[in-house]
Simulated scan of single mutants.
Amino acid sequence: MKNLKTVAIAFVAVLSSFATTAQTKKINTSASTIEWVGKKVTGQHSGTMKFKDGALTFKGGKLTGGSFTVDMTSVNVTDLEGEYKGKLEGHLKAEDFFGTDKYKTSTLVFKSVKEKSAGIYAVTADLTIKNITKPVTFDLTVGKDFATTNFNIDRTKYGIEYNSGSIFDGLGDKVIYDEFELAVTLKF
């Protein structure tokens, strides 16, 4: 009986340690997606980018952190084909926008995570684009094997000022809006 009690106490201790031990879930980079939309006065363009790596951290089943690296050379335009697709992708990779020859990756590192309700977290993170780091905030919905979020990024905060109506006057219908939209799905 004494041995059974000892085993039971040890079992409870092991279960308790799992509840408080951090667990890292690496994302499946080929199944996870980043979709973007950039808008201008005369319309919009959309596309995708790929993750290089990333992971979410949990403790006691609750989200506590995360970090991700995006392959900026993977910028892909999905609403155009042929020559125009190639030209826009080339321009997005050029110094006017992401400068992917010099800045091949961007990173997102969670700084604070607060649970808003079951499976929904308010996240503040440091986003680094072109070696410029600024805070971003967004809500992240977490399921058993996935997480999703949608948020906007003001490109001018990262030195991407090309045809920005808030920076340059007299652009007329050539204005590209400062914010671009991201829809992110993480699979792990």
Rank of each mutant, 00 (worst) to 15 (best):
L140Y: 11
L108C: 15
N150Q: 14
T133Q: 08
V142D: 05
D126A: 11
F151H: 12
D101W: 00
T137C: 01
F151Q: 08
T124Y: 06
G99L: 02
I132W: 08
K104T: 13
K130T: 09
D139F: 11
F110C: 15
P135M: 09
V109Q: 12
L127K: 05
D126S: 12
F146E: 15
G143P: 12
T107P: 03
I132S: 00
N131S: 10
F98I: 07
T137V: 10
D145E: 11
D139E: 15
T105W: 00
D101Y: 02
A125Y: 06
K116V: 12
P135G: 04
A125V: 04
V136Q: 04
D145G: 11
I120C: 02
N131G: 00
V142Q: 06
A118T: 15
G143Y: 11
F146Y: 15
V113S: 08
Y103I: 10
K144I: 00
K134E: 02
V142G: 06
K130N: 07
N150A: 14
A122E: 12
G143C: 06
D145A: 14
T107S: 10
L127T: 01
L127N: 00
E115A: 09
V113F: 05
K130M: 03
T124K: 14
F98D: 03
K102N: 15
K130R: 15
S117E: 13
T107Q: 10
K134C: 00
T133V: 01
A147E: 05
L108D: 00
K102S: 14
G99D: 15
A122R: 02
N150V: 12
V123R: 03
Y103C: 02
G119S: 13
N131T: 04
T105M: 07
D126H: 03
E115N: 07
F98Q: 04
K116E: 15
G143N: 13
K144Y: 06
Y121H: 02
N150F: 10
F138N: 08
T128D: 02
D126Y: 02
I132H: 07
L140D: 01
F110G: 12
K111C: 07
N150K: 14
T124A: 10
